[in-house]
């Protein structure tokens, strides 16, 4: 392959950003996410240990399940003793908790926030609604399976799950992180086209860049 050919392929790989108006397309990034390999086994193991002890969750209550996060922060359940802290901005957060049903309007914001998080990033899907739609399985406005739109690491079943169940879910997530199984960020980069296709299928007014940095 000569250099010209590689450039052509790179041009084809660029995102079209078709949802944006023509004059704004230059303002946004057109690169797609790339996979980032882990470090060597022992160093990555150490980092994963630190990551699992310091989980910063995005304080974005996407549904009724966000109600269960409040008691988790207060003195009764006290998540800070596990090193879990809320972070109000996606740039700094590493865990995204989808609190229950995600309507189409919300999933647009969820995708945007998820893409703005800096990896390695983890997703906890809370409640039955994220698993198979739950009691909203026949709703015109809420999605049924979250894992078609963003990669999910841990599901917590229930409607609603109690804060204890949430803590159990967090502990499960920690085990998975320490075992090096939480590669949602790379999964998203690998299956990017598939995720985008699913997202665009339900988000009809796609007026944002294809990949939000």
């Amino acid at each position: 392959m000569n250099k010209k050919h590689i450039n052509e392929i790179e041009d084809q790989m660029k995102l079209a950003n078709e949802g944006l108006p023509e004059k704004e397309r230059g303002l946004f990034a057109d690169a797609r996410p790339t996979t980032v390999d882990a470090f060597n086994k022992y160093y990555e193991g150490f980092l994963n240990w630190a990551r699992s002890r310091s989980l910063w969750m995005l304080a974005f209550g996407t549904g009724c399940g966000a109600t269960e996060l409040r008691p988790l922060m207060t003195s009764r359940y006290d998540m800070s003793r596990y090193g879990i802290a809320p972070r109000p901005t996606p740039r700094q957060a590493s865990v995204f908790i989808i609190g229950g049903y995600a309507s189409i309007k919300t999933i647009k914001r969820i995708v945007r926030s998820y893409e703005q998080m800096q990896g390695p990033k983890y997703v906890i899907a809370l409640g039955s609604c994220t698993i198979n739609g739950g009691m909203y399985f026949d709703s015109y406005n809420t999605i049924n399976r979250l894992d078609y739109y963003i990669p999910v690491d841990v599901y917590i079943a229930g409607c609603m799950p109690r804060p204890e169940a949430l803590i159990a879910g967090f502990n499960r997530l920690k085990e998975k992180i320490r075992a090096g199984e939480c590669e949602g960020m790379n999964e998203y980069a690998e299956k990017f086209d598939w995720f985008k296709k699913n997202q665009k299928q339900i988000i009809k007014n796609w007026n944002m860049p294809d990949y939000n940095w």
Binding site: V36, L47, A50, R51, Q118, G119, P120, M185
Partner: peptide, 8 residues
């Protein structure tokens, strides 16, 4: 350690 070990 956690923030400095972010991959991107």
């Amino acid at each position: 350690i956690q923030t400095s070990s972010r991959r991107v």
